[in-house]
Amino acid sequence: MGDGKTGRSSSPPNARRSALAAITVFLLLAGVTALIIFLIYRPERPRFAVVGAAVYDLNTSSPPVISTTMQFTLLVRNPNRRVSIYYDRLSAFVSYRNQVITPPASLPFLFQESRSTVEMSPVLGGAPVPVAADVGNGLAVDEAYGVVGLRVVVMGRLRYKAGAIRTGHYGFYVGCDVMVGLKKGFEGQVPLLASPPCKVDV
């Protein structure tokens, strides 16, 4: 009787251990398989470039507040041959001397096929933003000179898709430093005097 009771009481723990071991092996194999596939495809970061700019309003006459409406055309390139990219929680804003001068604007969800290029043209601004006095004064001086350095920022989350494999979400930050030709009182398309490739951090 004692031996029978002992055998019955030890069976469930053994079954649980076997089940846990099987689950652990399965998860390890699945993880290794996903990692191998991921390394084979080796997804690259997307590439951003500013190719156009327009300024419809820029009011620096009421410090410490700046009011502006700007539009930038960005090309987004997915350089991967076999990997698609999902973007979500996207937002964009413009900064000057590391000071935000437009409220962050939400951008729509984006899915990008491999080896494709899409265009984004967000309109940014439309509401006054408080800034430091030296920022407002510096922007007014640069505007009078006719050359203004700005940074267009896009941020959000992305994930990669390779076949049936999808990665988790990665936060990303894109900083595009541009020099635009802008004179006080001018509205519309402005020339890009310098627009190096944007820096993309994932």
Score class of each variant (00 low, 15 high):
Ser9Val: 14
Val202Lys: 14
Ile23Pro: 10
Ile37Cys: 10
Tyr56Met: 09
Phe72Arg: 00
Phe111Trp: 05
Ala49His: 05
Met70Cys: 01
Arg45Asn: 12
Pro46Glu: 05
Ala19Met: 10
Val100Ala: 00
Pro122Asp: 10
Thr73Arg: 11
Ala49Val: 03
Gly175Ser: 14
Ser95Met: 08
Arg82Tyr: 15
Thr167Pro: 00
Thr60Gln: 04
Ser95Gln: 10
Val141Asp: 13
Arg77Lys: 04
Val190Met: 04
Ala19Ile: 14
Ala34Glu: 02
Ile165Lys: 08
Glu113Gln: 12
Ala105Tyr: 14
Ala21Asp: 10
Gly138Arg: 02
Gly185Asn: 02
Ser62Met: 10
Asn14Asp: 12
Val55His: 00
Ile36Trp: 08
Ser62Leu: 07
Pro128Trp: 07
Ser106Ala: 13
Thr117His: 08
Ser62Arg: 11
Ile23Lys: 15
Phe109Val: 08
Val123Met: 13
Gln99Arg: 03
Gly171Ile: 07
Leu107Asp: 14
Val190His: 01
Gly2Pro: 13
Ala133Glu: 11
Pro104Cys: 09
Ser9Tyr: 15
Ala34Pro: 03
Pro130Ser: 02
Cys176Val: 02
Tyr87Thr: 05
Pro79Trp: 04
Asn80Met: 01
Val135Asp: 11
Ala164Glu: 08
Gly136Gln: 09
Leu75Tyr: 04
Arg45Tyr: 09
Phe109Gln: 06
Ala132Glu: 06
Val154Phe: 05
Val154Glu: 02
Lys199Asn: 05
Gly125Val: 07
Leu29Glu: 14
Val180Gly: 08
Pro64Tyr: 07
Arg45Ser: 12
Ile66Ala: 05
Ile36Asn: 05
Ala49Thr: 09
Val83Gly: 04
Phe109Asn: 02
Leu58Trp: 06
Pro13Asn: 14
Lys199Gln: 08
Pro63His: 02
Phe26Glu: 14
Arg151Asn: 10
Gly7Asp: 08
Ala22Gln: 10
Arg8Pro: 03
Lys161Glu: 06
Val202Asn: 13
Gly31Tyr: 08
Phe186Gly: 01
Thr68Val: 04
Tyr56Ala: 07
Val152Gln: 03
Ala194Cys: 09
Ser11Met: 14
Val152Gly: 07
Ala132Ser: 03
Ile85Thr: 13
Ser121Asn: 08
Ser91Lys: 03
Phe72Pro: 00
Gln189Arg: 04
